[in-house]
Each structure stands twice: as structure tokens, then as C-alpha cells.
């Protein structure tokens, strides 16, 4: 019998070098759970298993980094993306399911579906805006925002961590395109 996890997770893209002050870096695998629940079914629960679900639509709430990291992106009225450490997925699933026993919801591991890039540096907003048509001013899309949108011809989930710091997440087969698009855009 073969051991579990014989195969190592393979990176989806190799990093490309951007020549400008804005860097585009593939992020290490993270645990990602697509979480759906009707707001009424939450019945006032603001937090589940440490994930803060109280944020407005298109916002990001996050606690700590590393092993205990809990980030919740509210992408729609009944949809969240929960992000945790890659090796915490099973534990988080169990805990969330236990907290919601008997409550209609959906929790699906999509850790392998998505690939993320960080886009950082002065002018990162312009780089994202080269293909993303939404208003990225700090007024319209402040730090702590997160939304599903478009980059060129790919769908992305865009998070703003700080003024010049974004995370761009896309489905894995779009990752080479998204990475290429962003790196091309760093050339101005």
C-alpha cells in the first residue's frame, strides 16, 4: 500500500519576473473553502470557527497569518470564500460543519481550483486596472475590499490588502494567462 500524499502538490505556474517596481508573485497553496449559506440561516452568527462572516458584500475580514489564519471574503449575499492554511482544510471543514449541524449550507474544498498572485508596489492599482474595469480608487475600493470581477478575458477574485497591495485569485487553468497579463501590465 502506498503512503498517503505520495505525490507532492505541483505548482501551477513558474514565477515570471516583472521589471518594474510592481511585483507579481505566485502565492503558495492555501486552503480555500467555498461557503454558501442564506443570510437568514446564519441566524445572527457573526463568526463561525473563527471566520468573521459579518463583513459587507465585497469585503474581506482577516485574522492573523500563518497556521491560525482565517480570512473570509464575502463575494455575494450568500457566498463567502474562506481561506486558511493549506493543511488546515479538513479540520476547518469539520469544525464549520459541526457548528452548522442541521443548518442548510454548502462547504466545498476548492483549494486546488484556485491560484493566487500578489500584486505589490507603487502603482499596483494601475497594473490591475490595465485589465480590470472597476474603480480601484481608495474611496471606491479601499483596503479590506474583495470582489469577483474581470481581468482581461479571465474572471478573478480581487482583494486589496493595502493601497499598493492586491491579491488576484483565478481558476488554475487561467493562471498562466492572468500571470502573463499582470506581468505584461507592469511594463506600463
Amino acid at each position: 500500500m502506498l503512503e498517503r500524499n505520495l505525490a507532492r502538490r505541483a505548482p501551477t505556474v513558474s514565477p515570471l519576473v516583472s521589471e518594474s517596481s510592481v511585483t507579481v508573485t505566485p502565492l503558495d497553496p492555501q486552503g480555500r473553502l467555498a461557503f454558501r449559506i442564506k443570510p437568514a440561516a446564519l441566524a445572527g452568527r457573526g463568526t463561525i470557527d473563527g471566520f468573521d462572516l459579518s463583513g459587507a458584500i465585497n469585503s474581506r475580514t482577516s485574522s492573523e497569518e500563518g497556521a491560525t489564519m482565517r480570512t473570509a471574503l464575502r463575494l455575494g449575499p450568500d457566498e463567502w470564500m474562506l481561506i486558511t492554511a493549506a493543511d488546515e482544510v479538513d479540520e476547518r471543514c469539520e469544525a464549520i460543519s459541526a457548528a452548522l449541524t442541521g443548518v442548510a449550507h454548502s462547504l466545498v474544498d476548492v483549494s486546488h481550483r484556485d491560484v493566487s498572485f500578489s500584486v505589490e508596489g507603487p502603482g499596483a492599482d494601475s497594473v490591475v486596472n490595465s485589465g480590470c474595469p472597476i474603480d480601484l480608487s481608495m474611496r471606491a475600493f479601499p483596503a479590506g475590499s474583495a470582489t469577483r470581477t474581470i481581468l482581461g478575458k479571465a474572471e478573478i477574485v480581487l482583494q486589496r490588502r493595502a493601497a499598493d497591495s492586491f491579491t488576484v485569485t483565478t481558476w488554475r487553468s487561467f493562471a498562466p494567462y492572468v500571470q502573463g497579463f499582470l506581468v505584461e501590465a507592469t511594463r506600463g
Binding site: 482581461g152 479571465a154 498562466p176 497579463f181
Partner: peptide, 15 residues
Amino acid sequence: GPARDELFDPVRRTP
């Protein structure tokens, strides 16, 4: 704009 060659369209590849 940049929509040429590799960036003309996403080419989706399987694992």
C-alpha cells in the same frame, strides 16, 4: 492592447 499571442485568449491547460 496586450491581447496578442499568449495573451490573445486564455489557453486553458489541464494539470
